[in-house]
């Protein structure tokens, strides 16, 4: 009896184990692929900053422990933002034209047909303005890698350059890289209101669903504006 039970159990275990290892990672949980080295202090700091702008005087009089995320307010410094035409990411050798994209018929974000071009979500925020700007690109074509194939290699601190149609240049710094299961992707976090001047890059990742002809996860690279040169270069 033992003779059969042990080998079969062993075989079963090996099957499960190797399947788990071979398939492209677990697909239902959000995975943080890269984060800023010390996320907690940074977050705490920005929260304090935001909170204190509201009521600095009262804060000094009576120190009260604050614990909440402040609402998104309309910015008082109105940065116009730019119409992006070129995206450069030296660390993964990306240098791609950017075209405006809108909605698909289903109300999703449209993407370029080309695998060498990336698309900026035009109904949303212009890069450089307060809010979440979004640029999406393909991870692969039908036969091989596309413009954002190496996006998953990005790490917190890497720099991203966006050039505007009048030669303006914006520099963004990667904050974190996260793979989201498709049906749990935080669309509002990526596209919605924020007090930051943020740019989020999106491509596909995870296992490919042959039936749906679609990848089952989305890779999101969260970046924030670190410098802007809005005067045209000569």
């Amino acid at each position: 009896m033992k003779r059969f039970v042990y080998p079969i159990t062993l075989g079963f275990l090996v099957f499960i184990l190797s399947f788990q290892l071979l398939k492209d990672e677990p697909s239902e949980e959000t995975r943080v692929l890269s984060n800023s080295p010390s996320p907690t202090p940074i977050q705490a700091e920005t929260m304090d900053n935001k909170a204190s702008t509201h009521s600095e005087d009262i804060l000094e009089a009576t120190p009260i422990e604050k614990n909440y995320e402040p609402a998104v307010v309309a910015p008082t410094d109105v940065a116009e933002g730019i119409v992006p035409v070129r995206l450069t990411i030296p660390s993964i050798d990306v240098d791609a034209p950017v075209g405006p994209q809108g909605y698909t018929e289903q109300g999703g974000m449209a993407v370029p047909d080309s695998v060498t071009e990336v698309g900026w979500f035009e109904p949303g925020t212009k890069p450089g303005a307060t809010g979440n700007s979004v640029i999406a690109g393909h991870v692969d074509g039908r036969n091989g890698p596309a413009v954002f194939y190496d996006l998953k290699e990005l790490e917190a601190g890497d720099l991203i350059y966006v050039e505007g149609k009048d030669g303006e240049k914006l520099t963004y710094t990667v904050q974190k890289v996260v793979a989201h299961p498709l049906d749990e992707s935080p669309i509002r976090e990526l596209f919605g209101p924020t007090n930051e001047k943020a740019l989020n890059l999106i491509t596909c990742t995870g296992p490919y669903d042959d039936e749906a002809q679609e990848y089952t996860e989305r890779l999101a690279v969260y970046t924030t504006l670190s410098s802007s040169k809005t005067t045209p270069k000569n």
Partner: peptide
Amino acid sequence: LQDSAAMPSEMPETGFGGTAD
């Protein structure tokens, strides 16, 4: 306060599976 912004209802479809295992 800002309540919302123009957002797509779905994520972009950004791959054709040419490099998928």
